[in-house]
Amino acid sequence: MLTSIDLRKKIVQITLEKKKLTNFTARVGLVLDISGSMQTLYKNGTVQEVVERILAVACRFDDNATLDVWIYDNEFSRLPSATEADFEHYVQKHIMNNKMIHKFGRNNEPPVMQDVIRKYTVEEDSSIPVFMVFINDGGVVKPIKKVITESAVQPIFWQFIGIGDSDFDVLKQLDTMEGRIVDNANFIHIEDIASISDETLYNLLLNEFPLWLKEAAAKRIIRI
């Protein structure tokens, strides 16, 4: 019998075929907001579901089928990567039961973003593209614009997902930000991520990434 992750991988594959992204390798990462307003979503299983849904993308993109994971509030933690073998209780094991992790404070994005950049451009420097999914429920600090602008020369595409009913003013400005060699960030707003179908989520998630791939390859930022 097919498991939920198997079904999701099939849906990802169909989406990739539609967008002509098959036979393609990318490193996949996930940054999770763990500020105070996210408590309910951690406790009711929504965040665990998000990990599984993005892991399905990593299984199709990533050459070793792993999902790199970070969480942040006003501090951040780089967590063990998620894989098909160990994702089922990932949030409970690595986040909720981990007393070393700072949880449910205020949000501050630039430090965790700098750590993402450090991992993919210093520790594991490569021209293989990075698809970075960034979950946030509002209140993003304005200095993220500087980080995104400066990282436009790096092989990282930032896909922000705003969840809940905040206004997301800063994230809405990402597509029109000037001063970048390529448009390296996109924002989608999904008010209730638990109720959206996998087909719809993957279609939204992978909508602008192919455009960046072409632009970044043309500017020799990535190798595809």
Rank of each mutant, 00 (worst) to 15 (best):
I144L: 12
D68T: 00
P143E: 08
T3E: 15
R27H: 15
A217Q: 12
T3K: 11
Q92Y: 10
Q92D: 15
A152M: 10
N203P: 01
R60K: 11
F131S: 00
F187P: 00
V133W: 03
N186S: 13
E52R: 10
D183C: 11
L2G: 05
V170C: 05
D125C: 06
G179L: 11
K43W: 09
Q154N: 15
K43C: 09
E109P: 02
W212C: 01
L201V: 02
E49W: 13
S126I: 04
L201W: 03
K119F: 15
L204Q: 05
L67T: 04
R220Y: 13
L204M: 07
A218D: 14
D6A: 03
A85I: 08
M38D: 09
T149N: 13
D115N: 10
I193A: 01
L174R: 07
I156V: 11
I181M: 10
Y42E: 05
Q48S: 14
V130H: 12
R106M: 13
E199S: 05
E123I: 12
I101M: 12
A82S: 11
I34E: 02
E17I: 08
V116C: 03
F134I: 06
L213Y: 02
E191M: 05
K219R: 15
D198P: 03
M132N: 10
V116E: 06
F168E: 00
E109N: 05
R8L: 15
D198R: 07
D175K: 15
K172W: 02
W212M: 06
R106D: 14
M113V: 08
A152V: 06
A217E: 11
A85Y: 12
D62P: 01
I34H: 04
V130R: 06
P80V: 09
N97E: 15
L21S: 11
N186Q: 07
D6L: 03
T121P: 05
E88N: 06
P210V: 02
D68Y: 04
G139E: 10
L174P: 08
S151K: 07
V31W: 07
F87Y: 15
V147Q: 07
K99H: 12
N203K: 00
G138I: 01
G139D: 13
V57D: 08
A185R: 04
T200L: 04
I54W: 09
S195V: 11
P80C: 09
S195Q: 10
A56T: 04
V182W: 13
D73E: 07
I148H: 13
V57A: 11
R118E: 14
Y202V: 00
E88P: 00
Q92G: 06
G162F: 12
V47K: 02
I161K: 09
R223D: 15
R60Q: 14
P111R: 04
K18C: 09
D63M: 03
S197Y: 01
A194R: 12
D167W: 09
I181Q: 11
V130E: 14
A65C: 06
L16F: 10
E178H: 15
S127V: 02
N97K: 05
F168L: 01
K172C: 08
R106K: 11
L30K: 04
A82P: 04
L206A: 01
D192Q: 09
D169L: 09
K18A: 11
T149M: 09
P155E: 14
F187H: 03
R220C: 12
R220N: 15
V91Q: 10
D175H: 14
L211K: 03
G105H: 11
